[in-house]
Design a protein around this nucleic acid. Structure first.
Lengths: 321, 321
DNA sequence: TCAACATTTTGTCCAAGACAAACATGAACG
DNA sequence: CGTTCATGTTTGTCTTGGACAAAATGTTGA
């Protein structure tokens, strides 16, 4: 079989590679210049065409970078060395109920949709919503993210898992009326951060605390966040950041927003992504941990002299050893 | 009050403007060169800083471009001329039940969440799921999008509206078991297309047709779409494109995917966004209208010799004049 | 009225250089 | 021994100006 008879795979243009890998065109070009990788072909017009195998390697490198490795170390490596890094277990994760989570992970790996859905509801009934979210859902999301970064799980499994969680949260939330309570809190993310699960978790926790969440969905531009906050007369705006969101952009966005938001509306930032923000930002409350959310709520209630309805903000249940 | 005492608004860097307006850095720079707008200041390092008023104008221009105007006409205009264009009603929209839709639009404009949610369910019970989706939901989404492009509605209202729809669809779908039926169809969107509503509409329509949809959620890279299609053994992959997604990127992405997907798995593309694709793409079924989805399903079923369970694929109910 | 061709418009791509913020490294100090 | 501070390196993003192809528009002819 000669070359012309082969399935025609000329390679992907740089815009497709940007879409697939999440690496900006600028980065792709500067890597080529500095490290000599990737090495795309050129089409008749002199524009880059990336071979599929190189695109695959680029996504692998991106994964490892999200895990903390730096480009300078990764790009000179060959295939075997990269694969070896995938194996390495960095996990500083202090998981509690490890074996139970292992069981859940197995369900995710095998795409056992039905069992997953069924056991979600059972576990929620058992632990209560807050405990379920803190002890099961949040650690599970972290583990799924880690398994993905270790290449044990594909995006496909991760998406399927997210869909089931979203379905569950929305079903549960549909049956609760979140129309009164205080404080009123606007829930959304900045443009570019598309993860919705964090928002749903926070909404669930707030509803049982008699807080009134206003769910806007992800990706609201800052000037619209300001308008929404005023129109809906909220007491605070709560943004969620996943670990995928660049810390630089998070900090920049929070500063941009704080600049435009009226001073009497508080600004809270939660999620795994805020752990990466080192310096505190004036007028912004960073909540890297779940407990910080409860602390924020308690602080607001004492400052505004409202007697919490149900005898004070719930402390999270002590985690079982 | 002197200048120093003013709230310090130096302007936004080009990356923030890209995030807020959706215009690429390249486009922003080339507009400046060609049309003399925008005219950003420079910081100490010679980097662009865009004044908030210019950013506002840029988003307005982007809106009008989505409506069909071209940059060459828009950029030389001044504020009044732009505002005048907002007023103009281009609507080629052949709406049927106009006054009913007007009523719904009013609910969206006034953020009347409760009424919206209640009347959704009432109308669905009245018309049935398929009719409800075709006659109410789809036209409403179009009108909300148009109202937004005419600056009568903010992103905030649009997000709130989307959240209510999503809540409704997920509640309804949660109570139906989509685990068998044929064909099996994978539902997702390409990276960069984040609109989920199209997928949910299609899922709803498919469930009542005894098709088995596999909802993957938005933004799946093409190689993962291929893997998912094989693992879940689907008969077809159905992608959704909103009108916001660039037609160039849609076509490019469909070609990329068709190249990698096994030939025996069909590739369908639906949504408002595919109307903008002029040239047909080899091996891809374009479905700009709802009816096309039914035609695709019917075609599949006759080709595969399966007797449709419920006496053939439903024709959409005739629309009441 | 519609099809084919010519022309303008417009977004994206390229090159190579520059710089600041993030990160790592090592020294000095409590 | 751990912490703070000052260096040095890495790395992503920004810059300019030129180029080109695909899309949209205008023009001609059947």
């Amino acid at each position: 079989m000669n070359a012309e008879a082969m399935p025609f795979v000329p390679g992907l243009p740089i815009s497709s590679v940007e879409r697939e890998t999440g690496l900006s065109k600028d980065t792709l070009r500067v890597w080529e210049r500095r490290y000599g990788f990737p090495t795309p072909e050129r089409d008749a017009n002199g524009e880059r065409l990336y071979a599929p195998t190189q695109v695959q390697r680029l996504t692998q490198i991106k994964r490892l970078m999200d895990r903390g490795y730096r480009p300078g170390k990764l790009l000179p490596l060959d295939d075997e060395a990269l694969a070896a890094l995938d194996e390495a277990r960095p996990s500083v994760l202090v998981t509690r109920n490890v074996q139970q989570l292992d069981h859940w992970m197995h369900l995710v790996e095998t795409h056992d949709s039905e069992a997953l859905q069924r056991q979600f509801y059972r576990e929620m009934a058992k632990r209560g919503l807050a405990g379920f979210v803190q002890d099961i859902v949040a650690p599970l999301i972290t583990r799924v993210g880690e398994a993905w970064s270790r290449n044990e799980l594909g995006i496909f499994e991760e998406h399927l898992f997210s869909q089931h969680l979203e379905k569950m949260f929305r079903t549960v939330l549909a049956n609760m009326s979140p129309q009164q309570g205080s404080p009123r809190v606007l829930l959304t993310t900045l443009s570019g951060e598309e993860h919705t699960l964090g928002l749903l978790m926070v909404e669930a926790l707030m509803v049982v605390e008699d807080v009134c969440p206003v769910l806007l969905g992800p990706q609201t531009p800052i000037d619209e966040i300001v308008r929404a906050a005023q129109l809906k007369q909220v007491d605070a705006v709560c943004l969620s950041f996943s670990s995928a969101y660049s810390p630089t952009l998070s900090a920049q966005g929070l500063r941009d927003l704080r600049q435009m938001l009226p001073a009497d509306i508080e600004l809270w930032a939660g999620g795994y992504g805020v752990k990466a923000i080192r310096k505190p930002i004036d007028g912004v409350c960073l909540m890297p941990e779940f407990q910080d959310l409860y602390d924020c709520l308690a602080k607001w209630q004492t400052e505004h002299g409202r007697e919490p309805v149900s005898g004070g903000v719930t402390r999270l249940p002590e985690t079982t050893k």
